[in-house]
Design a protein around this nucleic acid. Structure first.
Lengths: 156, 156
DNA sequence: TTTATAGTTCTTATAATTGAGAACTAAAAA
DNA sequence: TTTTTAGTTCTCAATTATAAGAACTATAAA
């Protein structure tokens, strides 16, 4: 019956906080909580019903959110022999790709800003110069990311 | 009567695209369009009614969005002697601060992840190691931003 | 002093998100 | 073959976000 997992008050608070952070990054409340639960939970692999009951969600919200998070590559699942259940877990090991994705979002706007710059009147000199600088910095930033990773790897 | 400013189809399309980008970053449609208009418009300083009529917004949506963008530091205004109107303009010159703000959002989660790490069981070794790495990279990244700006400045 | 201007604020109306609950489905177990 | 399990999908209700429109306000102009 009760698949609810036991969490300390501290853990519940951290799930809430991390969940809100995920919401700000564009996830729905339910998806954010599930992603957060799979980061905070001492048990790394949780079944559908453990997630559902721990977070008090409906089956539909749980199913839809799990599938969204899987399609985003944020979580995956494993099965255990003799058990039909799937056990979901965070793909935190993929953090480099996740990070790269979020950098891509910052830098991809550079192309759009360039299109804007191209059709601006030459007369708005100071403005255009600032726009040019933003674009230039974004591209420089993008270019430097690999070496940033390399330098971090070394410093580890 | 008509304070609507003239825009090419291309400019309208760019406002739409940049507006959607701003929406994805958390602004409402109206705020996103206003910020985009003040980036694309060949006329840099636009009055309340020029913004309103060009984007076909209600007075309330225009007023609330303008005030939100001002409180965020995304736009400001000037007045011209003998004219009561305020003329709003993009604060694109502040792009370094804007960029820093968006970096802060990425790196601020490090403290939360650290709190999560601290209370995790030692048994989930691999997971904890990954979490540790994310935190370490985020902090390294934050630390490197100033020198990234410096190097970019030089390369300019 | 009255009127016009430049917005602001308040009260809805509409639309979009979100998730609940029930009905359904496919595969495995009995 | 029937039943149970592990989810999925559909429909709908509730909440939330968004902005329209009207009423209001403060300042300046006439």
């Amino acid at each position: 019956m009760s698949d609810q997992i036991t969490l300390t008050e501290k853990q519940k608070k951290l799930i809430e906080q991390l969940g809100i952070y995920h919401e700000k990054s564009g996830l729905s409340p339910a998806s954010g909580r599930i992603k957060a639960l799979l980061t905070v939970s001492p048990v790394l692999e949780l079944s559908f019903d453990q997630i559902r009951e721990t977070l008090q969600l409906s089956k539909s919200a749980t199913s839809n959110s799990i599938n969204l998070l899987m399609s985003m590559g944020a979580i995956d699942y494993i099965t255990h022999p003799g058990d039909r259940k799937r056990f979901f877990r965070s793909k935190i090991g993929n953090w480099r790709d996740t990070m790269k994705q979020s950098f891509r979002n910052i830098t991809n706007v550079a192309d759009l800003l360039e299109e804007i710059l191209i059709q601006r009147p030459n007369e708005t000199e100071e403005f255009n110069k600032n726009l040019e600088e933003v674009i230039s910095f974004m591209r420089y930033f993008k270019k430097e990311i690999p070496s940033l990773y390399k330098k971090w790897d070394k410093s580890e």
